[in-house]
């Protein structure tokens, strides 16, 4: 699983890490039952605090993408299938936005509005 974070970004590291896992899920690189690497390994590999890695995993548990079980680590749930469906829809959405010259800020504003209504 490919995880990427940018310490220079204003987005908190744990959110970036969670987004990285989500993006792997939406690209179909994760299947239900897959185990995420141990938080300790992820923290060591990315030179971040283990609590940051754990917080990212907790965030993913709260949204239902993984199950956290003592001794078994973070296991991907069945919901991952929906993420890969989204992963197919989003590139299409972005492509049609680009086609008519709608930028990322406008598109996210439109998505936010859709949620709000």
């Amino acid at each position: 699983m490919l995880l990427r974070i940018d310490p220079a970004s204003s987005v908190p590291l744990f959110e970036q890490l969670a987004a990285s896992v989500r993006s792997e899920a939406s690209r179909g690189n994760l299947r239900a039952g897959d185990r995420l690497p141990a938080a300790r390994d992820v923290a060591g590999s990315l030179d971040i605090n283990i609590h940051t890695a754990l917080r990212a995993y907790q965030l993913l548990r709260d949204e239902g993408l993984v199950d956290l079980r003592r001794g078994r680590g973070a296991v991907v749930t069945d919901r991952v299938a929906h993420y890969s469906e989204l992963g197919e829809a989003i590139p299409r959405l972005v492509a049609s936005a680009k086609e008519i010259g709608v930028g990322v800020h406008t598109l996210t504003a439109m998505i936010r509005q859709e949620y709000g209504s």
Binding site: M1, L2, L3, R4, I5, D6, P7, A8, R35, P37, D41, V42, S45, L46, D47, I48
Partner: peptide, 15 residues
């Protein structure tokens, strides 16, 4: 190759 920005950190782990 994955395009990485300076300062960006990346990790790939698999069993």
């Amino acid at each position: 190759p994955v395009a990485l920005a300076q300062g960006e950190r990346a990790s790939w782990i698999r069993t």
